[in-house]
């Protein structure tokens, strides 16, 4: 087995946005650190791996089978908001404007990166449509987010479910995650039907 430095460097370099160089910087920082950061991080990582998983229904991180949103009976089960990342759920929650449920895709369709529809939990989304009156496609306004939304709309509409997208306001190229609270609240409240 590789020595611990090499092993951790290789492991960290698998994280999005972290290259070999940055991973190495983290490793040497942890080695030199005297405040116990390495143990603390190791413990937190072990807990994350052992105690957390993705909600069986919507894909949001959860400690049980169902996440806090899916198991909250006060939430409107007739409304599903589809997002690219869990961070988008947090951003939408901060607006306090939305009381429905979510569906996290953990990505968007992207042929250039080899991500086809079969790599995303789309079948799971379609299986949830019973009793749902509206699906909001809150995907980022990128070429990929837009194509994914158009594709989902084609699959969902035949089931007789209304499909909407947040209105303008979220600038082209800006992620849902980074939109400010007021802009995002406004975009969700004035969402438009598709097609």
């Amino acid at each position: 087995m590789a020595d611990p430095i090499q092993q951790l460097t290789a492991a960290l370099a698998r994280l999005p946005g972290v290259g070999e160089k940055t991973a190495q910087r983290f490793v040497f920082f942890l080695l030199a650190d005297r405040t116990g950061a390495a143990r603390e991080i190791a413990h937190a990582l072990a807990r994350l791996a052992d105690e957390m998983s993705l909600c069986r229904q919507c894909g949001f991180p959860s400690q049980g089978e169902l996440c806090a949103y899916c198991s909250d009976p006060r939430r409107d089960g007739g409304l599903i908001c589809v997002v690219q990342n869990p961070q988008d759920v947090l951003a939408i929650e901060r607006t306090a404007e939305y009381r429905g449920r979510y569906h996290v895709l953990h990505g968007v369709i992207n042929p250039l990166e080899g991500v086809g529809p079969d790599r995303l939990p789309i079948r799971e989304l379609l299986a949830r449509l019973d009793g749902v009156s509206e699906v909001i496609l809150a995907l980022n306004p990128t070429v990929e987010g837009d194509a994914t939304a158009l594709y989902l709309q084609r699959l969902i509409s035949p089931a007789g479910v209304k499909v909407t997208r947040p209105a303008t306001g979220v600038a082209v190229g800006m992620g849902i995650e980074y939109a400010d609270k007021a802009t995002l609240a406004q975009a969700i409240n004035s969402r438009r039907g598709m097609g």
Binding site: P111, L112, P117, E144
Partner: peptide, 24 residues
């Protein structure tokens, strides 16, 4: 354009998705 070309090069493409790339 790059996404559509990349999609065209994949075997057995999903026609529903090709419609989407065309529309876009």
């Amino acid at each position: 354009l790059r996404q559509r070309n990349s999609f065209l090069r994949q075997g057995a493409p999903d026609m529903e998705l090709l419609d989407v790339y065309d529309e876009q």
